[in-house]
Design a protein around this nucleic acid. Structure first.
Lengths: 180, 180
DNA sequence: ACCTGAACACCGTTCAAGT
DNA sequence: ACCTGAACACCGTTCAAGT
């Protein structure tokens, strides 16, 4: 077989699509390679590791998010929406936050907003408090959705539908506490 | 080879130790089986899946946590301490929270504490707000620690050491917001 | 009842060799 | 420069067959 050309962009695109459509458990280097008609090893000429690939995919999940929002409440809502658009989005972004915190837009935007009321140290902590809450909230939402999809757990109709309200409740409490 | 007897407790014990000492990436069914001197398939007579095993391990991580604490601040601190005792503790508990929410003590305890000020619905949301924050915070702490340990990322001395203070800052903000 | 042996269908990563 | 082929060292899970 001849070597079929692959670009880094194609790899990232395919990885993103795979994640968005099928979730993190379907996103493997071998699957990406197969879809692109290339041997698994070929990917490593363009990307150092699966972790690096995930970091770039996470950045794409958050692309389009404005780097400066009106207020923290809107920033948090936009953040959640971006995560929900991609299956397991919160888990991927959560990992990348520890791997490459500099790559993540929402923390920057929030820190800037909080910089009006706090000094640098506390603005950073305030931003992280919001980010941790959002990631924790959405991670549970999405993990639960994956388990329902897999038929491992059945969704209980009592607690479903309240997600937006529950999210808003927490955000409001946090923001009111931060401005107290 | 003859069949060596294994109990469910031995499996859970070994899984917990493996996690505590070496982290989630070292916790495999095959490794547990090897350590117990048994074939991998033998485990499936005692435990339905790796997910079920993780659920029991998560319960053990939180065992010893009082099911009714004095105040939410203490409950949150105890929760974080329990997670930090085991490598990748937050990630495991985070997964299990979506898989078997009923198994997790801290939400129960917090809901009970918040039930004094809120009705059932809002007490639940308040408890979850705190739990999401704690899990998000500790997940980042531990993910970062794993990456440092693996030499993939070097820890920056500027932001290290502040963890307790940063955690307290967020908790105080959330709790003051919840009681406003 | 409980385990072995062996398989099935996968993983991420490396690297000599080819073009 | 970029890819193949092939390997290395693993995974979770299933299941007939043994005891």
């Amino acid at each position: 077989m001849r070597g079929v050309k692959v670009t880094r962009d194609q790899i990232v695109d395919r990885a993103y699509e795979l994640l968005a459509e099928a979730g993190l458990s379907s996103l493997s280097m071998r699957r990406v390679a197969l879809d692109l008609g290339v041997q698994p090893g070929a990917l490593y000429y363009h990307v150092a590791s699966k972790q690096e690939l995930l970091a770039v995919v996470a950045a794409r999940i958050l692309k389009g998010l404005p780097d400066v929002a009106k207020d923290p409440r809107e920033a948090a809502g936009d953040f959640r929406s971006a995560l929900l658009r991609v299956r397991d989005g919160a888990e991927v972004v959560s990992f990348v936050q520890a791997y490459r915190p500099d790559l993540l837009v929402p923390t920057h935007a929030l820190r800037r907003l909080f910089a009006a009321k706090f000094d640098g140290r506390h603005a950073e902590w305030a931003a992280r408090t919001v980010v941790h809450y959002v990631l924790g909230f959405v991670a549970e939402e999405q993990n639960h959705a994956e388990l329902v999809r897999a038929g491992i757990v059945e969704e209980d109709p009592a607690r479903s539908g309240d997600s937006d309200e529950a999210f808003g409740f927490g955000i409001d409490a946090i923001l009111s506490g931060l401005s107290g």
